[in-house]
Design a protein around this nucleic acid. Structure first.
Length: 514
RNA sequence: GCCGCGUUGGUCAAGGGGUUAAGACGCCUCCCUUUCACGGAGGAAUCACGGGUUCGAAUCCCGUACGUGGUACCA
């Protein structure tokens, strides 16, 4: 038996969104689990919507997520090319063969004629008439026209497409790894276009031919493809034999808060829908969408968290485990535990995954990204080891990467404003006296460690007969500006003796006005 | 309209004839901490509806409703 080969086939007409990433992920996990190959091919047959740069974008996303393909347009491999536009000729050959065998036919109808047909046959009961067995003899094609007429049209290079001739009254059934047995009545499926007038194949012809040529064993895709699977099954039967057909798995959809998750206006939900920023909106769409769409990466997600949350949205291994690394996913994943029903995406839960991964991973893993956030806000990090210590101190209170700035900026910036409302009720001469004395004590403190800083503080409080608790709160506001952050004495230790006493002094001046 | 697929708390979900119907997110209360968070202990909240089958149904069957996908020379 041949090795497992799965493929992901994005079309470069938009960003790589949640559903797309999860589809890749399940493909990837299945391939890795079974020691097979994971290949990526590009479905760039839709010239009018093709977006330059999209291919690179998709690969950048996959790379960020940790899913490097074994074969792809960018990595090469034995079945190159992996771009459908570069395989154009082979599709034509197969289309001609189908016609020769009586499974397909030429259709010469123009766009106007098709539109006319749809209008003429449109009724309340049938709002969208199909080009199917019931009406194809009334259209302009090699079935309805005489052989001479067809030859003439062909000789004159009349624009035409190739359509599949759907049989009447057959039940087409197939096995899906998730949905199990699925069947369709062939009379209800239309004569799909296989080869477009420009010579490009449609998805229907291309998947079948490419899956065959690239020896794909398992084809996993979104559930939106389920309805067109009968066409693909027939094509396999006519062209290569059902025994060579890959195993199908139609993955459940990821839904938005109200209905389907749409790629367009990703801003609508208040959370990203793309893996990474998608720099160009698809050509030909609403100019309104032509703005920068936010990605999970840019929002401050860790790839580990992003992969993890997507993996368990539609699959679980039956245990209570929720946090999985990529390696754990590979060993736990199984297709038969993928859910049938679609799942609503919950951003709150997504954030929880990120928070867990921030806590779980060493800060070194994301230090560079956080550093960039600080530098973008004007804080230059010169001592990375010190920076790492600070991140370690605040990591458990960060959900998204940008939170590190909000949680740790005060290590680098002396407060300019203070939470006076908290200090004012407690502020009096005794406290002022205490902190004035504290400066002198700290100035002569030889061991600037958290323990001695704290001991000195508490000793002085005892001497002055003031409760330590409220002094700590005031001390915190002096150092941070507000009631936030890790333990006060850790903060003092981290910013150093000089900065600590400076901040106390500065606060003393401010508080004297209270 | 037609065809396909689906339906366990607000969300993700386990459970596939007998369970007090797990767990997680979110929400609420309390503890810890005179900051926030983390952590800990609790709480509210669920089998879409109607019929069967069965001693017994969230689980099996049939309808209905609702949701969702397709119905393009888009993928």
């Amino acid at each position: 038996m041949s090795k497992v080969r799965v493929r992901f086939a994005p079309s470069p007409t938009g960003g790589l969104h949640l559903g797309g990433v999860r589809t890749v992920l399940y493909n990837y996990l299945f391939a890795k689990k079974n020691g097979g190959d994971f290949i990526v091919r590009i479905e760039d047959t839709d010239q009018t919507r093709f977006v330059a740069g999209a291919e690179q974008y998709i690969f950048d996303c996959l790379k960020w997520c940790g899913m490097k393909p074994d074969e792809s347009p960018l990595t090469g491999g034995p079945f190159a090319s992996y771009r459908q536009s570069e395989r154009k000729e082979s599709y034509r050959t197969y289309a001609e063969q189908l016609i020769k065998d009586g499974f397909a036919y030429y259709a010469f109808d123009t766009a106007e004629e098709l539109e006319k047909m749809r209008n003429d046959f449109k009724t309340a009961k049938n709002p969208s008439p199909q080009y199917d067995g019931k009406i194809r003899m009334q259209m302009k094609n090699s079935l309805s026209l005489s052989a001479d007429e067809v030859k003439k049209l062909l000789d004159e290079n009349t624009r035409h497409v190739v359509r599949i001739k759907m049989p009447a009254g057959e039940t087409i059934s197939f096995t899906d790894m998730i949905h199990h047995e699925v069947s369709f009545d062939s009379s209800l499926v239309d004569d799909k276009v296989l080869l477009k007038a420009d010579g490009m194949p449609t998805y229907h012809l291309a998947v079948v031919v490419d899956d065959y040529l690239m020896q794909i064993t398992h084809a996993f895709r979104g559930e939106e493809w389920l309805s067109s699977t009968p066409v693909h099954v027939l094509l396999w039967k006519y062209l290569f034999g059902l025994d060579k057909m890959p195993q199908w798995a139609h993955l459940p959809l990821i839904l938005g808060p109200s209905g389907k998750l749409s790629k367009r206006d990703g801003a609508k939900y208040g959370f990203p829908v793309f893996a990474m920023n998608w720099p160009q909106a698809p050509a030909g769409t609403d100019p309104k969408t032509n703005e920068l769409t936010e990605g999970f990466k840019e929002r401050g997600f860790l790839p580990e968290a992003f992969i993890n949350l997507l993996a368990v949205l539609g699959w679980n291994d039956g245990t209570e485990q929720e946090l999985y690394s990529m390696d754990e996913l590979i060993s736990s994943f199984s297709m038969d535990r993928v859910h049938i029903a679609g799942a609503k995406f919950d951003f709150e839960k997504a954030k929880w995954f990120n928070q867990e991964w921030i806590k779980k991973l060493p800060v070194a893993d994301y230090l560079d990204r956080v550093k960039a956030i600080f530098e973008a806000k004007g804080i230059v990090i010169t001592d990375e080891a010190h920076f790492a210590k600070i991140l370690e101190l605040v990591k458990e209170r960060c959900t998204l990467l940008p939170d590190f700035f909000d949680q740790a900026f005060f290590f680098y910036q002396t407060p300019v404003t203070y939470d006076e409302a908290s200090v004012k009720p407690k502020w009096d001469e005794a406290r002022q006296d205490f902190f004035t004395a504290l400066i002198s004590r700290y100035n002569v403190l030889s061991d600037w460690s958290i323990n001695s800083i704290e001991t000195e503080f508490k000793n002085l409080a005892t001497e002055k007969n003031i409760k330590v608790g409220e002094l700590q709160m005031i001390f915190r506001v002096m150092l941070v500006g507000s009631k936030m952050g890790p333990g006060v004495f850790v903060i003092a230790e981290t910013i150093g003796k000089e900065e600590t006493t400076n901040r106390i002094e500065k606060a003393l001046i401010n508080f004297s006005q209270l």
